[in-house]
Design a protein around this nucleic acid. Sequence first.
DNA 1: TTAATTATAGACCGATCGTCTAATTAATTG
DNA 2: CAATTAATTAGACGATCGGTCTATAATTAA
Lengths: 214, 214
Amino acid sequence: MENKLNQQPKPRRGRPPKSSRDGSDTRAMLIRSGVAVLTESGFATAGIDGILKNVGVPKGSFYHYFKSKEDFGHAVVDSYAKYFAAKLDKYLLDDTVPPLQRIMNFSNDAKQGIVKFEFKRGCLVGNLGQEIAILPESYRLKLQDIFIVWQIKIENCLLAAKQNSEIKADVNCIQLAEYFWIGWEGAVMRARLLESVQPLDLYIDTFVSSIIAN
Amino acid sequence: MENKLNQQPKPRRGRPPKSSRDGSDTRAMLIRSGVAVLTESGFATAGIDGILKNVGVPKGSFYHYFKSKEDFGHAVVDSYAKYFAAKLDKYLLDDTVPPLQRIMNFSNDAKQGIVKFEFKRGCLVGNLGQEIAILPESYRLKLQDIFIVWQIKIENCLLAAKQNSEIKADVNCIQLAEYFWIGWEGAVMRARLLESVQPLDLYIDTFVSSIIAN
DNA sequence: TTAATTATAGACCGATCGTCTAATTAATTG
DNA sequence: CAATTAATTAGACGATCGGTCTATAATTAA
């Protein structure tokens, strides 16, 4: 009776599975192209062909690496969430800077990104959230979870600001962190509409000055 | 030399326009269906066929009343903006109620609407704003103008609240009115994502309590 | 009636959508 | 080398899209 947990005593014939051999470059390229396209256009209107053309990969390869467009979208969102969480940590955990200033620094970085792409790209999570009614149901929980992660990072920063007496002692940091991201997505949308970072400035300034200690 | 302002001395030959003949206006039905569909799905992913099916109108009629989908979209947005402005006036100009309470009343009305449609429909202007990068350029100015109209209505209400000493004397009502709509759109988006009005409650409560006089 | 105009009806087109199957290429063993 | 197996590519496929088109029904003046 064979034990499946034992590795094969003799190597199998034929080409070995990929995992041991390749960094899977094509797949990563597709995801990067997907982030770019979906950040600009959302999920539903994004075409596979456009995503492929950006990186010169034929269509047949797409359905080798992803079993469906929906599956691909999840990989794109995961990649974006990972990238964004790292960016948040970079600024919000920077203890060489006062907590409130960290939030401003994050905002400035985001502003630069929006300008860099000429207001054509927004927040991927915001884009998909807006079209949630026509998205596969599998996206809802995922987007909710991402906002929770972001929210906790801001919450911790606000708590640090409170401990630092930068902000009023009576603010509810949990609620305020949720409020922050609610408004942030609106500000990104408006900035794209106006093709100006002014809404982002207005948003951050108003948000911060509504909580600073006097 | 004929004066264009003079009506035709003799009635024109042929079938007269429908408006003078029939109460059930096909064009209006198409627009109403368009509001429903675009409020749920946005512009790009909305199909003409789906809009027609809702009201049992054949495709041939669509391109009789509208010269293109883009043209139709403008009519839909105009209709929505008119409807929404009337709703805002209904609440924000109600001088039987203190100014800040008027804003809360508007918010409650909006909340009911979102619940009524089971979180499937959002704000048409917000939906189209999110996809502005892939929309015909003609939409950008139109959406911007609509936000300006809404903003002025809130601004006037905030000014009344200030005069009433409901809110702090040092608030910038213009900036705050813009800030209000920036965050509002984010709150609507999040409510649809969570399928809960909690984000709208959180948003309004936090906004109001950040400006009330102490 | 006939002429003129509005409105309905839906077939049709090229483009594009997501998906799938077959063929090719690459990697490994005997 | 040949055989075998997996990875990847290539493009066909049917469905659907927005948009156009021609035909015809409906309505009214002449």
